[in-house]
Design a protein around this nucleic acid. Sequence first.
RNA 1: GCUAGGGUAGCGAAGUGGCCAAACGCAUCUGACUGUAAAUCAGACGGCCUUGCGCCUUCGGGGGUUCGAAUCCCUCCCCUAGCA
Length: 361
Amino acid sequence: MGVMTKPRSRRIILNTRRGKVLTPFFMPVGTRGAVKGLQPSQVTATGTQVLLANAYHLHIQPGEQVVKKLGGLHQFSHWEGPILTDSGGFQVFSLAKIRKITEEGVYFKNLASGKEVLITPEKSMQIQFDLGSDIIMAFDDLTGLSLTERNRAKEAVERTHRWLERCIMEFHRLTKGMKDSERPLIFGILQGGLDKKLRRKSLEFVQSQEVDGIAIGGLAVGETRKEMYDMLKFLAPMYDPGRVRYLMGVGKPKDMRFSIEHGIDMFDCVLPTRGGRHGSVWITAPRLRSGSERDLKINLGSAAFAKDADPIDKKCDCYTCKTGYSRAFLRHLFKVGDPLAGSLASIHNLRYLNRICELYQ
RNA sequence: GCUAGGGUAGCGAAGUGGCCAAACGCAUCUGACUGUAAAUCAGACGGCCUUGCGCCUUCGGGGGUUCGAAUCCCUCCCCUAGCA
């Protein structure tokens, strides 16, 4: 999969109450309301249309009621574009060690206070609604790759479906009386791990529901690239053509290109920002043999860049590269631990992914 | 000149007869990171290779005691503080 893009037959625009969004698009992760180290204007300058925030983390701190009282997440954070909120479903996976799943919902141990927090499908809807989210995600049960997790994949899919029905009911209750143009959107999430039968069943179920978008959850959790690609190929012909498809958690350039070419419209991922803060950035580099281009990850902390006067990527149009920050200066900032390094690298990476999306838009 | 305390790997700092190629921290190098418990984490960090719980060279310099010394003794050099 090179940098060259194949033509895309889909041409879909996502209508949110805060404006239209061109697809495909990538959402930076601003878990707690901010993309770490970046001001909203800097995020916008990378070409970002939609921001992702997290219901679980904002519920824990500062609490959705505080956010609501201060005018909602948009006013609170100064992000003016559409916001998609994750439901807390991912935390069922990422915080597996400190949670307990029941049919009612999931009990999490708040690491800061030690107190137990119960997130139910209804609660997740309420939190996201109170935050002022424009795209509300269903609360799902995400299974990992370990044997015990694989063994409960079927159970988790069925629970995810039951929870989706509860999410939709609660969503209707919360948005009762709102005009279509004023209400947030709601997306359902399909699961099924690496089991194709389960995946198909899950996709069919989610598409049978009153949801505005279809999200694919539970991929990019450690399986091989081939396994993920096989699943995306398998699902591609079965999507409802009228609704957007959101592949959750994916954000490696190569994977995004593949996914877009297999019918995916939306992405989010921590990689451009977390990786950026850790010094890794993407550049386009020629292949040694063919000379065609490919995505290459480099680490700016490397000694190789100590005296490198070039920007991260000469062809890049991001703020960091266009301003002319050298690799040597960025390496220096990383070495001395200046947070500006992470911010400048995050800007570059976000622009990198957004540019990929723009090629297909 | 006297007295006291010191000199350990790039730096700081443990160790005070064998389990010491030498804890730990920093720095350095390499690598991870996919709906953020992550500005984080992992590994390497005297030299060599057949990568073995192998070999070689180390704990200011030199000499000695001992089966065995970073650790004990002698001597020299240097540093810090106080006194002359």
